[in-house]
Design a protein around this nucleic acid. Structure first.
Lengths: 337, 337
DNA sequence: GTGAAAGCGCTAACAC
DNA sequence: GTGTTAGCGCTTTCAC
């Protein structure tokens, strides 16, 4: 096998036709005789010809590819959203190019630059960490949809998210309904989604006349940060914890049990997201479940729409979460710990 | 903002120089006067110029991109391997393009085709499902390294994997050491990795004189399949279960507890992989841990090496797993269930 | 230092 | 139906 791949030119000479005919034949044009078509297809197969997408996209000015940024591949919530994206996008003949910023926000920008250089036709950002100006600059250049966040607006940028304030309120309502009043919130740190969930917590607490009980303990969105934050939370002697997301909630439960307290007998814990692993019996996490695949599907639909009409009005779609009661929450104990 | 992006030509006219000089300046060539360089850089910035990677890769015949196939984004084991890949690859100025076949093996081939059309310089396949011929065809075309599997060999294809037979034997040894003899294996289904783990189980059982106790219950590599397989396993009245991977083990534990049996008091369970979530107290899974990030790092090193020397001899690297004893295994009960 | 010209692999008019 | 031509955006000799 030669060092360089066969080109359309090689196929043409082998089939004894011109380059353009090969191009036509391979793209299934009806204006190619059956005889030629067969010779061309055969020649291509024998040579192991594979079209060069770079060359193609250069001339047609389309890549049929959309770029997807995922904040953290380790959090299953993103894989589940991505499922929805992929399914929808493929049905429309598009492929996805995935990147993940990892821990470093600067990398996030660099990776997006790479996607743009590769001429992706659209960008789906799942829980990014970009500043508003950077985001607007990107959205001005390429159709962009933001998933899970909706704090930044731009004329050509769509969003699909969950109403985090409402979701957080549902969590508190559930806990209060179980008789809890010493409800502490383990926050997800300094980001818009976590801010909204903390805000919902405050609103609901206030509404239930528990304003004096409001305690937000700073934490994060990973299992390790959830685990670590429990120490400060327990100092407040809560009977229930509302944790910013499921993964952190699992970490929190680990720490609670490590402190020889039982969930839910001593402390109830509710998470947020609805990751599938939370449904497994050993975890059995009560949570506010977002329709994850729907989130992805909607994002894909929005990007496809905007690719077809770049000047479409900005769309800000919201999906609603539902309370899923499982085994980590229960009625408050008669004698508090 | 015009509908089409600024090109190098636009930058050139704006800076009052030729295209070639722009190209030189932007690539940091020393043979450009400081005055010109500044004018060019400014013009590029004002225009929001972004190089077109398609055009560039067309002429330099390099994409500086390597493609990565991940079998299943939901299994955290792959995210952890990917971490290692990304870290290493970035240090060498390469980017990654991620794809995931999802449930359908045919999609896997299609996605790889896309990657190749985009002229990736190498392919890292993390737990693929491709037939041997397809794999050899791919490896003949582009530098390829296979992670976690090493059942297929080809002259220009490298592999990095864990010795699954040895790992499985360690699992059985541990269980036997705890006094177990009725050890059932929940297999991961019909794939080479699972086959190797089952084989290790058989070897170790035989070696411990427990050949008569060998029972392999067909399962899969997801939590749901692990859960489902438990029914058949329990019919065999085991005191211990060796499950093909951690995720399935978590599913299995869920099912065991659902059947009102305790882990590890009634049944010990050991998994395989060493995903980080398994270390969380509530899960606390005893397992055979692979050095996941190392696996990724080594794969990246191999692909980089082969990109620089396509005819390098095939390398088949093995990393070794370690037994991590946590809370889901324990001594066999005096009176069997 | 700088510009002109050629060409990477491909598609899309436009002739014939 | 088929071939010729031009050109997508870029890099890279090669003159000057």
């Amino acid at each position: 096998m030669a060092h360089s791949r066969p080109t359309i030119h090689d196929v043409a000479t082998r089939a004894g036709v011109s380059k353009s005919l090969v191009s036509l034949a391979l793209s299934g044009s009806p204006k190619v005789s059956d005889a030629s078509r067969k010779r061309i297809v055969d020649a291509a197969a024998e040579l192991g010809y594979r079209p060069n997408a770079a060359a193609r996209s250069l001339v047609v000015r389309r890549s049929h590819t959309i770029g997807v940024l995922i904040l953290d591949l380790h959090n299953p919530v993103f894989a589940e959203i991505l499922d929805g994206v992929q399914t929808e996008v493929r049905q429309h003949g598009f492929s996805t190019m995935l990147i993940s910023g990892g821990v470093d926000p600067a990398l996030e920008q660099a990776e997006i630059d790479m996607l743009l250089q590769f001429q992706v036709e659209g960008l789906i950002l799942i829980a990014h960490r970009l500043p508003a100006e950077a985001l607007r600059a990107i959205a001005a250049e390429v159709p962009t949809v933001i998933v899970t966040r909706d704090d930044i607006a731009a004329p050509t940028m769509d969003t699909v998210s969950n109403d985090d304030i409402a979701g957080a309120r549902m969590a508190v309502d559930h806990l209060v309904g179980q008789g809890h009043s010493r409800i502490v919130h383990l926050s997800g740190g300094d980001n818009p989604v976590s801010d909204a969930r903390a805000e919902g917590y405050r609103q609901a607490m206030t509404q239930h006349g528990l304003a004096a009980q409001i305690h937000v303990v700073p934490g994060g969105l990973t299992d390790a940060t959830g685990y670590a934050a429990v120490h400060d939370a327990l100092a407040l002697k809560p009977t229930a914890l509302f944790v910013a997301n499921d993964v952190a909630a699992m970490g929190a439960i680990a720490a609670i049990e490590y402190a020889n307290l039982r969930v839910p007998e001593d402390i109830s814990v509710i998470g947020y997201d609805g990751i599938s692993i939370g449904g497994m019996r050993r975890v059995n996490l009560t949570t506010i479940a977002q329709p994850l695949a729907d989130l992805g599907r909607l994002a894909a639909q929005q990007i496809l729409r905007r690719i077809n009409d770049r000047s479409a009005p900005a769309q800000r779609e919201q999906v609603s979460a539902t309370l899923v009661i499982r085994g980590t929450t229960g009625p408050v104990a008669v004698t508090p710990t």
